[in-house]
Design a protein around this nucleic acid. Structure first.
Lengths: 193, 193
DNA sequence: CTTTAAATATACAGACCAGTCTGTATATGT
DNA sequence: ACATATACAGACTGGTCTGTATATTTAAAG
């Protein structure tokens, strides 16, 4: 077991370090040497775990997806335990995300912009991630507001994506509230039919 | 005059080439050597016009802002001459933008993601650009739907930003229609008070 | 025709890039 | 004791990056 433990600890240290650096300074702005130096790992250790930087990018995004999903779930549960509806809890979580000191937007949108290559495995993973995110959001809406509200889900997804990039470009979290208020209007309309 | 003409033609060729390359392959993915080779210009000519790549990036974004504004204006005028309202004309233009073969999203969002540095002059220009864009959109909404509709402008701006990134990540223009339909609902609500 | 300004081609410096290779240390399981 | 697996350190390759230096060509203006 300790063999596995050591193995996974090096791999995990690389993933955590790369995720932090890629997110804060950009994928192309961070070289392999930076990653291994800050992870405290030999270069060959990195290349034994990941065949190339491109593969590391992909694995970092998979790791990020897990981390984000679990963070969001927990944040929403905390909010719902305070009496918020699932949708309120979602927007409160998003808002607190935007307000984090190191917030720099969505890793997947950023990766798509940076890689500038729709054929890159990481770009295709981002497309897939957005599909999953849209479905998760749709589930939240249905759970909070009933099946008739589902018609508003695609527009609310677009609102959330817009809030994410707007909060980065404008440097404040205001867009979270704008998106939430608009979502309420769209759901009311969807319920009305 | 011809001296000036040669000068400005070299500068313009550099800007046009860099804009095209930066947009399609990413700012960090394109080196100065690529730009000068494809612009058919000597390296020193580029560095006589722009003191550094960072300055070139900024000037390219300024150039892009002009080009985009003029393209959008003309596209909207064409659409309005077919009987569309300013808002319909706006969304029709956006939709045709998304459908362009070389569409890769918003240069300013992409630059913000790529540069990963809020203090970079180009990032700050992007913030300013988004402010201008939001105001332009607000003017369109007021012109098309009256002053009471202005309350819906911030949310519609967020919708448009979301449609821009969603259309890139998902690889289709569907988000334009989703955003337009939602905008109509939000405007109706704003008019109702 | 000469002066002057701009653009040219080419070479260079120095940093950084991804990725490979060699060799060593450590710790496990046999 | 030995084999195996993993991690470590660090040099190295071949290439790219931005930016500078220099010397030559072009062409317009006085």
């Amino acid at each position: 077991m300790s063999k596995t433990q050591r193995t996974s600890s090096a791999r995990k240290r690389i993933l955590e370090t790369a995720e932090k650096l890629f997110y804060s300074e950009g994928i192309r702005g961070v070289g392999i040497d930076r990653v291994i130096a800050e992870a405290g790992v030999a270069k060959m250790t990195l290349y034994n775990h990941f065949s190339s930087k491109d593969e590391l990018i992909l694995e970092v995004l998979k790791y990020r997806e897990e981390q984000f999903e679990s963070w969001l779930k927990q944040a929403m549960e905390r909010n719902q335990s305070k009496g918020m509806s699932p949708l309120q809890a979602f927007f409160a979580a998003i808002r607190s995300w935007f307000k984090k000191a190191d917030y720099r937007g969505c890793s997947f949108i950023n990766a798509t912009a940076e890689l500038a290559d729709a054929h890159h495995a990481a770009s295709q993973f981002c497309t897939e991630h957005k599909r999953k995110f849209r479905e998760m959001l749709s589930d939240i809406i249905i759970k909070a507001e009933g099946p008739k509200a589902a018609a508003a889900a695609p527009a609310i997804h677009v609102l959330v994506e817009g809030a994410i990039v707007t909060s980065v470009c404008e440097g404040n979290a205001e867009a979270a509230d704008i998106a939430e208020q608009a979502a309420i209007v769209l759901i009311a309309k969807a319920k009305r039919g």
